[in-house]
């Protein structure tokens, strides 16, 4: 694998993770638990989808085969997608959406902080912009994890169930393969072991503060680095890609 191929794979992985998460979050738009929160979550969806667009644009330019960000988003199937499996999990109730988001925001906060130091200027630039947004997202979702955890019995149970059910998808966030090895050597990619230590500490403190229990000895699911997903992704893509695939010659 050349550095260029690795960089393409890496950027695609980051782009896909943001795109699928943005897609899931935007399902809430217009249906939030109250107006202010509807606006906040839509805003997070907007930031994340914007980051996805920048990353896929960059991936397309690295590939250099004349594909655009839209070709990458709309004309790959699920086996060619590399988003982390946690992002494609259904929204469920609001606690589940918030817990999923807090887990990812916390990861993103430390991940993009590291990526901002990348020797690849484009990735570093995207990361610098992203940190500003993620800092706000993390503050927002953490405050809701606390509210749910230490709110009512019902909200506590919903949040704890969400933590228990989503935990199996957290291991995958820190998996590294040949792509990472090549790019870490070049000073381009982030060493996910560094992110993992910081993430663990932060999320453990957040759960504790929220009177929630951190699951122990959970079997971790895996697959997305190889384009293997849960059953949910194909449905997300079927919906998202329908129009461009129905009219492949059209420009929108």
């Amino acid at each position: 694998m050349t550095t260029q191929e690795a960089l393409f794979q890496y950027t695609l992985r980051l782009g896909d993770t943001n795109l699928i998460l943005g897609q899931r979050l935007s399902e809430w738009t217009g249906h939030g638990p109250f107006l202010e929160e509807d606006l906040a979550l839509t805003n997070i969806a907007l930031d994340i989808t914007g980051t996805a667009k920048s990353l896929l644009e960059y991936a397309a330019s690295i590939e250099g085969k004349g594909r655009t960000e839209d070709d990458l988003a709309y004309f790959r199937n699920d086996r060619q997608y590399f988003n982390a499996q946690i992002t494609e999990q259904p929204n469920g109730d609001y606690a589940r959406t918030i817990v999923r988001q807090a887990i990812i925001d916390c990861f993103d906060f430390y991940f993009y902080t590291e990526l901002a130091k990348s020797k690849d200027e484009t990735l570093a630039g995207i990361a610098q912009k992203s940190i500003k947004e993620v800092t706000y997202h993390l503050r927002h979702t953490s405050s809701w994890v606390e509210r749910f955890g230490d709110g009512t019995e019902e909200s506590h149970n919903k949040a704890q169930t969400a933590v228990n059910e989503l935990w199996q998808y957290t291991g995958e966030l820190f998996e590294m393969n040949e792509v990472d090895a090549i790019l870490i050597k070049e000073g381009i990619a982030v060493d996910l072991n560094i992110v993992k230590a910081k993430w663990e500490k932060h999320i453990t403190e957040l759960l504790e503060k929220s009177t929630l229990t951190k699951p122990e000895n959970v079997f971790m699911q895996t697959g997305s680095r190889k384009g293997i997903h849960t059953e949910h992704l194909a449905y997300i893509l079927a919906e998202m890609q329908a129009l461009p695939r129905m009219y492949p010659d059209a420009k929108w």
Binding site: L19, Q23, S26, E27, T29, G30, L35, D38, L39, T42, N43, A45, L46, T49, G50, A52, K53, L56, E69, D70, A73, Y74, E239, M240, A242, L243, P244, A250, W252
Partner: peptide, 23 residues
């Protein structure tokens, strides 16, 4: 139509628009 917007640009624009309406 947010989840079915046919380009990433149109998806972002539509999200922003619907958010404005909520605002």
């Amino acid at each position: 139509w947010i989840t079915r917007a046919p380009s990433l640009r149109s998806k972002v624009v539509l999200l922003a628009k619907v958010q404005d309406e909520g605002g």
